[in-house]
Design a protein around this nucleic acid. Structure first.
Lengths: 159, 159
DNA sequence: GGTGAAAGCACCGAGTT
DNA sequence: AACTCGGTGCTTTCACC
């Protein structure tokens, strides 16, 4: 991947789109004193360079009945089983993030479920995967901060 | 919050917008054999009901130089300091998620940094917060799965 | 790499069924 | 509720700078 150089205009475009993906390019153009065509070209280039990978809605999981979040640390019998287990984890949609980690656990995943009963089923599914020796669960009582946009904005301020 | 009943049309609209927030309403309308006006009204209602909270870009952090992910478990001196510490954590933009948890740790956060040196500074900042007795870090060697959209889509299939 | 204008569409409200 | 329709405004391209 060729290193792609972003300038301040790009950062500002990203900052506005991060807040709201549907911000009209004409609004962005006005604010930055450039033409809408320029905004369009720059966004397309960032998409082609895969800096912008896509866009997604932020949904309210609580109102969809998904109130339960937990993190599960996974111990494997052998680390050589890592890829196999990761593939099995992919089949469980309630796992929203999976990491290979150093330290205590071999793998570490985040799960989102409707309630404790539902979460139990998810954890049992994980325990059932060949190669998983045991798991350790941490239940989230409160997700007090979950805002990717904070990081993104700070990245551009630092640069 | 009044319970808001989503029907299958709503689910399909969400599924298309989850993939790409800028999908034209006319495209959605064609696919679902409804009018674009109806799509518009339904989306607005879901926004008003706060089911759709907003939209955001998916950026490639690696190409922005942010290659380092770790999870940090935080032990507090007293649980009564929870809110105070959460507020301090908010000031660190590299913390992208924070949870109050049961089990081993009192708090649990995810950090994203440029490299190990940068991460070290972030962790030291956490250690320096009043009320934090110690921390335990798990470094992610690989983020193999990070796709909210999988969960969202599965939610609508189940319903 | 940027502009400005023009053509093509999409959005979104009003009125209707 | 959902549809059609039309004014308004957004996107996207292109010739030119």
């Amino acid at each position: 991947m060729a290193k792609f150089k972003l300038d301040d205009i790009d950062h500002q475009i990203l900052n506005m789109l991060i807040e709201n993906t549907r911000t009209p390019f004409t609004d962005i153009a006005k604010k930055l004193n450039i033409s809408a065509g320029t905004v369009h070209v720059r966004v397309r280039k960032m998409e082609e360079a895969k800096i912008i990978q896509g866009s997604s809605l932020t949904l309210n999981y609580n109102s969809l009945g998904y109130n339960f979040i937990a993190y599960v640390g996974i111990f494997l019998e052998k680390t050589s089983q890592t890829q196999f287990v990761l593939n099995r984890l992919e089949d469980i949609p309630n796992i929203t993030v999976a990491h290979v980690t150093t330290g205590k656990f071999n793998l570490f995943v985040k799960i989102r479920a409707k309630n404790t009963e539902h979460a139990k089923n998810v954890i049992f599914k994980i325990d059932d995967i060949d190669g998983v020796s045991r798991t350790e669960t941490m239940i989230s009582l409160e997700e007090s901060l979950n805002d990717k946009t904070r990081l993104m904005k700070s990245i551009f301020e630092e640069m």
